[in-house]
């Protein structure tokens, strides 16, 4: 019994210590971020590897998600003779929910895991320690540009995901199932509000980018510097990011749409 209590206490202490380290790390990163704007080259290189290299998976997944939405939506709407609202259905689902959330999940799987592995390996091979001894702050030189790149790419990727998804819905709905072209777009234009729908979706994706970037950076920076430690950290990045994104999505939805 005592043993169990002891273990519980130790686990809880460990958890809080990690949370504390994570928060301090975030503060350190945020403090270093303005300085990195003076060296845009570093950020642009990371935007390439974090953002551009994630584009393929985002576009392909977006297209398929949109096509499935078109198919499923049509089958339901047609029973009520409301198939002309297909555009609204697809657009609202994507901009409000699926765009930010699915893009964030894919982003965590593709870019987040890569970032954690990269930073964890840099730690394991003493590259971060070496920088410190060369009087170069690794948080500023390595972490800040990557964090900023993740933060900037996420909303853009989510927007691309939604746009491609709507196009996928259009392909299936209008191209394949014969929904009226004009009704598809005009209903969408009529019912999707810029402020209530699109902007709130963008806010979601900004929050997700911030959180996924933070988790990926911290897991890499805090990884046990061995092969096993880095692989565990990579797994943790994907799992924690997914859970946090889904959890936060509920909170944000309740805050923004739950009036």
């Amino acid at each position: 019994m005592l043993d169990l209590l002891q273990q519980l206490g130790r686990a809880a202490l460990g958890l809080f210590q990690r949370l504390g380290r994570g928060n301090l790390f975030l503060l350190q990163t945020l403090a270093s971020t303005p300085g990195i704007l003076l060296r845009p080259g570093l950020v642009i290189r990371q935007l390439w590897s974090v953002g551009v290299l994630t584009l393929v998976i985002i576009v392909v997944s977006g297209l398929f998600v949109g096509m499935v939405m078109g198919l499923q939506g049509y089958n339901t709407l047609v029973d009520f003779g409301a198939e002309e609202s297909l555009g609204v259905l697809v657009a609202l689902s994507l901009v409000r929910e699926l765009g930010p959330v699915v893009a964030a999940l894919l982003f965590a799987g593709r870019a987040g895991s890569a970032l954690t592995a990269e930073i964890g390996l840099m730690k394991a091979t003493e590259q971060l320690s070496g920088m410190e001894m060369m009087a170069v702050d690794p948080v500023q030189r390595v972490i800040a540009p990557r964090f900023l790149a993740a933060f900037l790419s996420m909303p853009l990727l989510a927007a691309i995901f939604s746009a491609v998804g709507i196009f996928g819905g259009y392909l299936v709905g209008v191209g394949l199932l014969g929904v009226d072209d004009g009704a598809f777009w005009s209903q969408m234009q009529d019912k999707v509000d810029f402020h209530d729908d699109i902007l709130n979706g963008v806010i979601k994706s900004i929050v997700f980018g911030f959180v996924v970037g933070w988790i990926a950076m911290f897991e890499g920076y805090d990884a046990v510097p061995t092969a096993e430690g880095v692989s565990q950290a990579t797994t943790r990045t994907v799992v924690h990011s997914a859970l946090v994104v889904l959890g936060l999505d509920f909170v944000l939805t309740a805050l923004m749409f739950g009036d």
Binding site: L121, M122, T125, E126, Q127, S129, G130, M131, E132, M133, M134, A135, D137
Partner: peptide, 19 residues
């Protein structure tokens, strides 16, 4: 501390080259 480190070179066991 960073000023001091600029005057000290360190050779790590692994080399610690930036890959």
């Amino acid at each position: 501390l960073y000023r001091m480190r600029k005057r000290i070179g360190m050779l790590f066991q692994s080399g610690a080259l930036l890959t």
